[in-house]
Simulated assay, not measured.
Amino acid sequence: MKRLYLLRHAEARPASRGSSDFARTLTDRGRKTAALVAYYLRDQDYRPDMVLCSNAKRAEETWAVIAPALQPYEDSVERLIESLEVQYLKSLYLATPETMIMLMRTLPETTNSLLIVGHNPGIQSLAITLAGSGEAVADAPLYRDFPPTALAVLNLEITTWAALEEGCGRLLEVAIPDRG
């Protein structure tokens, strides 16, 4: 079994005139909700073996807020980032579920848990695609709303990433930080 954490980046500023969507940065509220998710991940002992992060500025900043909270020891953040494989990928910028599935199928089999920091609608659609069906999924907020900094946690009923396919997962929870 594999574990998958799907995180939509935190709230970002609107693109300013003359700047690109890709360069948008987090708002103060976005930093706050990213910190809430970071501590939630830590408190639930949700610790990925690997992180795949869109290289859009808002996704990178979201991961930068989260990384220190996942640090297991009183040690430097730099050591955590060195010990945890983090890849910043342009291919995750506004990626489709199909693109992300193809990417995950190439992961090393030693990776048992993966965090993807990405964008909507792809992250939400990927969670729905992998979650399969059933009452728990149908009632999940995943179908209604997946705001910035929403987190979907899935167990994948696979032993190899190459076996990843639609419906192979079980949605454990959707966590949405306080929007206040």
Score class of each variant (00 low, 15 high):
residue 57 K to V: 15
residue 39 Y to A: 04
residue 151 L to S: 04
residue 56 A to K: 06
residue 37 V to E: 09
residue 132 G to N: 10
residue 21 D to K: 05
residue 21 D to E: 14
residue 105 R to L: 06
residue 117 V to R: 08
residue 21 D to N: 13
residue 21 D to C: 06
residue 97 P to R: 08
residue 78 E to C: 03
residue 72 P to V: 00
residue 85 E to D: 11
residue 116 I to K: 04
residue 93 Y to L: 11
residue 122 G to A: 09
residue 50 M to K: 13
residue 83 S to E: 15
residue 50 M to C: 14
residue 53 C to D: 06
residue 7 L to Q: 05
residue 173 E to I: 00
residue 160 T to A: 13
residue 51 V to T: 02
residue 66 I to N: 00
residue 54 S to R: 02
residue 78 E to P: 01
residue 118 G to D: 10
residue 73 Y to T: 10
residue 55 N to Y: 01
residue 160 T to D: 12
residue 56 A to W: 03
residue 93 Y to V: 11
residue 132 G to V: 05
residue 173 E to P: 00
residue 48 P to H: 02
residue 52 L to P: 08
residue 40 Y to I: 00
residue 63 W to F: 13
residue 84 L to Q: 12
residue 150 A to S: 15
residue 140 A to L: 09
residue 17 R to V: 14
residue 102 M to P: 00
residue 131 A to K: 09
residue 107 L to E: 09
residue 39 Y to P: 00
residue 161 W to Q: 06
residue 71 Q to A: 07
residue 70 L to A: 08
residue 149 T to H: 02
residue 56 A to Y: 03
residue 91 S to G: 06
residue 12 A to E: 11
residue 140 A to P: 08
residue 125 S to Q: 15
residue 74 E to T: 11
residue 6 L to N: 03
residue 96 T to Y: 07
residue 16 S to Q: 15
residue 6 L to E: 03
residue 89 L to F: 07
residue 75 D to E: 15
residue 178 D to R: 12
residue 52 L to N: 09
residue 42 R to H: 08
residue 165 E to Q: 15
residue 21 D to G: 09
residue 145 D to K: 11
residue 133 S to H: 13
residue 63 W to H: 09
residue 28 D to E: 14
residue 166 E to K: 14
residue 144 R to I: 04
residue 41 L to I: 01
residue 33 T to W: 00
residue 113 S to E: 04
residue 171 L to C: 06
residue 64 A to C: 01
residue 10 A to R: 10
residue 106 T to G: 09
residue 27 T to A: 06
residue 42 R to T: 01
residue 133 S to K: 13
residue 52 L to Q: 11
residue 58 R to E: 10
residue 30 G to N: 06
residue 24 R to Q: 05
residue 120 N to M: 12
residue 101 I to H: 03
residue 163 A to H: 11
residue 105 R to V: 07
residue 51 V to M: 01
residue 41 L to H: 00
residue 92 L to Q: 12
residue 67 A to S: 15
residue 82 E to Y: 09
residue 94 L to N: 10
residue 67 A to G: 08
residue 60 E to V: 14
residue 80 L to T: 14
residue 54 S to W: 01
residue 129 T to S: 14
residue 149 T to M: 06
residue 133 S to A: 14
residue 45 D to A: 13
residue 179 R to C: 02
residue 40 Y to V: 00
residue 69 A to I: 03
residue 151 L to C: 04
residue 62 T to P: 05
residue 128 I to L: 15
residue 168 C to T: 03
residue 123 I to E: 11
residue 113 S to V: 01
residue 132 G to Q: 11
